[in-house]
Simulated scan of single mutants.
Amino acid sequence: MTNIVLLAGNIGNDPETATTRGGTRITDFRLATSRPRRVDGKVVKGENGYAEQDTEWHRVKCFNGLAETVQKHCVKGMKVAVRGRIHYTQWTDSEGVERYGSEIIADGVEFLAWPKQRDSAGNQSEDTDEIPF
């Protein structure tokens, strides 16, 4: 069996990069994915008539060349697709409590659309499907 995950969503923070003592570059960011909220198998609609959304946050980690590309070209709000694997972690915090977590180790990140931009008057422009590189 293979551990494969594919997520598409919006980047929740500007990516942050660090370099290990051994020279490995690591870039982290959070990815928000959403799906319609359901109760008893039916989609829940809000007062405005639109489906309510449940949002989940994922920690994504990229290494070396991919880390550099993500750091250079990704920003908060950008739509991306992440392909990778789930990695589970376990540690003991400073108070001696055992903690658990998970993160996505990315093998690839596809740029789907730029985030919405605001002009000097504060007006929001539309997303574009074209990534200019």
Rank of each mutant, 00 (worst) to 15 (best):
Gly65Thr: 13
Thr20Gly: 07
Ala113Gly: 13
Asp93Ala: 08
Ile105Trp: 06
Glu47Arg: 15
Gly46Ile: 02
Ile104Asn: 10
Thr20Pro: 07
Thr19Tyr: 12
Gly96Leu: 05
Glu52Met: 06
Arg99His: 07
Phe63Cys: 10
Ser34Trp: 02
Gly49Asn: 08
Glu103Phe: 01
Glu103Ala: 06
Val75Trp: 10
Gly12Cys: 00
Gly23Ser: 11
Trp91Asn: 06
Glu110Gln: 14
Asp107Ile: 03
Met1Gln: 09
Arg21Trp: 02
Thr55Arg: 10
Val43Ser: 12
Asn10His: 09
Arg37Pro: 00
Ser94Pro: 00
Ala67Gly: 14
Ile131Gly: 15
Val43Cys: 09
Thr89Asp: 15
Gly122Ile: 01
Asp93Met: 08
Asp119Met: 06
Asn48Glu: 07
Ile104Gly: 12
Thr27Cys: 13
Val82Ala: 12
Ser120Thr: 00
Phe133Met: 07
Ala81Glu: 13
Glu16Gln: 15
Asp107Ser: 13
Leu66Asp: 07
Gly49Asp: 06
Phe133Leu: 09
Pro132Ile: 03
Val39Trp: 07
Trp91Pro: 02
Thr19Ile: 11
Asn123Ile: 00
Gly23His: 12
Thr20Arg: 14
Tyr88Arg: 08
Ala121Gln: 05
Gln71Cys: 09
Ala81Phe: 09
Ala67Lys: 13
Gly65Ser: 15
Asn64Thr: 08
Pro15Thr: 12
Asp40Arg: 14
Thr19Gly: 10
Pro36Glu: 10
Thr69Lys: 15
Ala32His: 04
His73Pro: 06
Asn64Leu: 05
Ile86Phe: 04
Asp28Val: 03
His87Pro: 00
Val5Lys: 07
Gln117Ala: 06
Asp107Gln: 11
Gln90Cys: 07
Pro15Leu: 13
Arg35Cys: 03
Arg59Pro: 00
Val60Ile: 12
Leu31Trp: 10
Gly84Leu: 03
Arg118Gln: 10
Gly101Val: 01
Ser34Gln: 12
Ala51Asp: 15
Met1Asp: 05
Arg99Lys: 15
Lys72Pro: 02
Asp129Val: 01
Asn13Arg: 14
Arg37Leu: 09
Thr128Trp: 13
His58Pro: 01
Ala51Val: 05
Phe63Arg: 10
Glu98Ala: 15
Trp114Gly: 11
Ala18Phe: 09
Val5Trp: 07
Asn3Val: 02
His58Tyr: 03
Val5Tyr: 04
Ser34Phe: 03
Ser102Arg: 08
Ile131Pro: 10
Thr19Val: 14
Glu95Cys: 02
Gly84Pro: 04
His58Arg: 03
Gly23Leu: 07
Ala18Cys: 09
Arg99Pro: 02
Asp93Gln: 08
Thr24Glu: 14
Ala67Leu: 11
Phe133Val: 07
Gln71Thr: 12
Cys74Asn: 14
Ile4Met: 11
Lys45Gln: 12
Gly77Arg: 11
Val82Phe: 12
Gly9Cys: 04
Pro36Ile: 02
Asn48Leu: 04
Val5Glu: 06
Val60Gln: 11
Arg25Pro: 02
Phe133Ala: 10
Val44Tyr: 04
Thr89Val: 07
